[in-house]
């Protein structure tokens, strides 16, 4: 995965030089370890800042919404599916994009590493399958597969679904992954237990909306949380307001969420709000046989009516 960086710089440099694109969206190293930030490369000097490692979890499709210029964009499996969703929803045109596919082996969850570290981590060194975190008088090596983001460990679409260039040959997709164990464990609870479970889950929420901002699906000019006439959801930390927010946010992602994990990654208090979207993802798969963002030509199930759509819930 580390060898990707050179190849990415080469492709980005070539695309910019030939004038095929006006900018390339990728990642550069962040100011602290494990926090790569999005990078918009427009000049050869910018290109040299592009990097790729296991901390590129931000979903770059988020930066494509309503852009007018020609853009080269790096795309992991999940990014590429969100790009497909963007194309379906007319947020960007396919012709504007040069998609640089990056076969992905999963991104590392910085919290998992930070939790096992005794001090603040000041340096992180990555090898092919391991990752070493160093701090003041401290050094520890982890197997990457043990510290992956939860959604990455369940991912079955690691390779980009659409691409114009590839930085490496496709990686082997994970087989036999049980993607919905979490959903099932909640389904086994009684309504009271579920209520309690989500109350505890959402208790630390500070309503910063980082999950919404990190999400490539959330591009409404005015979000429902900011509407005040009528006000759909209060702005307080009242549990029912918090719950309404998370509930509606999840609903808006129904049939669109690729489980890229950007929301969970962005959350400053570590709430796993994927618990909501995961359920909707499973429902879409069970009820409509739908997996998000695999083909720009197919309309999503909530867009189209089919006579065989399930309707048992109606009296």
């Amino acid at each position: 995965m580390l060898s990707y960086t050179e190849k990415i710089r080469e492709i980005a440099g070539r695309l910019l030089q030939s004038g095929a694109v006006e900018m390339v969206i990728g990642f550069r190293a962040g100011t602290v370890p494990m926090m790569n930030e999005p990078h918009f490369a427009k000049t050869p000097a910018d290109v040299q800042k592009l990097v790729w490692d296991s901390h590129c979890g931000i979903n770059l499709a988020n930066y494509l919404t309503d852009r007018k210029e020609k853009i080269g964009v790096l795309a992991k499996g999940c990014d590429s599916r969100n790009i497909v969703t963007h194309i379906i929803e007319n947020k960007i045109k396919r012709e504007q994009l040069v998609i640089i596919g990056v076969p992905c082996k999963g991104m590392v969850d910085k919290r998992k590493i930070a939790m096992k570290a005794e001090t603040e981590i000041t340096e992180v060194i990555e090898a092919e399958t391991t990752i070493t975190a160093k701090g003041h008088g401290f050094s520890k090596t982890f197997e990457k597969k043990d510290v992956l983001q939860h959604n990455c460990s369940l991912c079955i679409h690691r390779n980009p679904v659409i691409h114009d260039e590839m930085v490496a040959p496709p990686v082997v997709e994970q087989q036999g992954v049980d993607r919905y164990a979490d959903v099932r464990s909640i389904a086994a609870m009684t309504p009271e237990q579920r209520w309690k479970y989500f109350e505890d889950l959402l208790a630390p929420c500070i309503r910063c909306y980082a999950c919404r901002n990190a999400c490539p699906l959330c591009y409404c000019p005015t979000c429902f949380v900011d509407e005040s006439r009528p006000q759909w959801v209060g702005k307080s930390l009242d549990p029912s307001d918090v719950r309404t927010f998370h509930f509606l946010r999840a609903y808006h992602c129904a049939g669109r969420c690729t489980d890229c994990g950007a929301c969970e990654r962005a959350c400053p208090v570590g709430i796993n709000m994927r618990t909501f979207t995961k359920k909707l993802e499973q429902d879409c798969l069970d009820l409509f046989g739908w997996e998000v963002g695999l083909d720009p030509e197919v309309r999503p199930p909530l867009d189209v009516y089919r006579p065989q759509d399930p309707n048992d819930f109606i009296k």
Partner: peptide, 29 residues
């Protein structure tokens, strides 16, 4: 239901504008 709101708090039905008897029936249910 996933979130712990009891199933049945939200109900759906389909009634034609001519079916006032069905309306009464469903309201009661």
């Amino acid at each position: 239901e996933h979130m712990g709101i009891e199933p049945g708090r939200l109900q759906f039905s389909w009634i034609s504008s001519a079916e006032s008897t069905k309306f009464v029936e469903v309201v009661t249910q």
